[in-house]
């Protein structure tokens, strides 16, 4: 039942091929990007902000480790390893811009804090990272809230 595109006589038209691709993309997205509640992004924003603010403490890891655990548990339970779907493969091209901005902000905070020695850098960093997550969540919910 496999045929080469070069020799197959009964191949679909361009419109049919496009419709098939759209249908496949929608089906992939239904698994890859489930509808997520607002609170999911609020929790993730709070976790990231807490991890930035933890840098103001003498022992940041006392806050960072529990935050990482919360992020992993919530992310797994409601997205990557949720009921009925095991280990979603997220598209790198979709995730990298978000990760780059979040990690870039963290790196910028480290550099600025080292250069200036000012604690407020981490407060601004926490606010920026939380805002990025909430903005991403708003966009995600607009694009995928109705996905089945």
């Amino acid at each position: 039942m496999v045929s080469s595109m070069e020799t197959d006589g009964g191949r679909p038209s361009r419109a049919e091929a496009q419709a098939a691709l759209d249908s496949a993309r929608a089906a992939e997205d239904a698994v890859r990007y489930p509808p997520l509640s607002t609170w999911f992004f609020v929790v993730m924003a709070a976790v990231l902000a807490a991890m930035s603010l933890a840098q103001l403490l003498d022992e940041p890891r006392l806050v960072m480790v529990p935050c990482l655990v919360v992020a992993l548990v919530v992310g797994s339970r409601f997205w990557f390893h949720r009921d009925g779907v095991a280990w979603v493969s997220v598209s790198g091209s979709d995730m990298w811009p978000f990760l780059a901005v979040v990690l870039g902000t963290a790196v910028a905070c480290v550099v600025l804090a080292e250069l200036t020695g000012q604690a407020w850098v981490w407060v601004v960093g926490a606010a920026v990272q939380a805002a990025i997550v909430l903005r991403t969540g708003h966009r995600y919910r607009r694009e995928h809230a109705g996905a089945r």
Partner: peptide
């Protein structure tokens, strides 16, 4: 490679869904 077994609309969507995760439950 065009594959007629996969191209049937429902089977294409099944494969698409399965391609997005390690495994998916029948009920989903």
């Amino acid at each position: 490679l065009f594959d007629e077994t996969i191209h049937a609309p429902h089977r294409l969507r099944v494969c698409a869904m399965l391609s997005a995760a390690q495994k998916v439950e029948f009920a989903v």
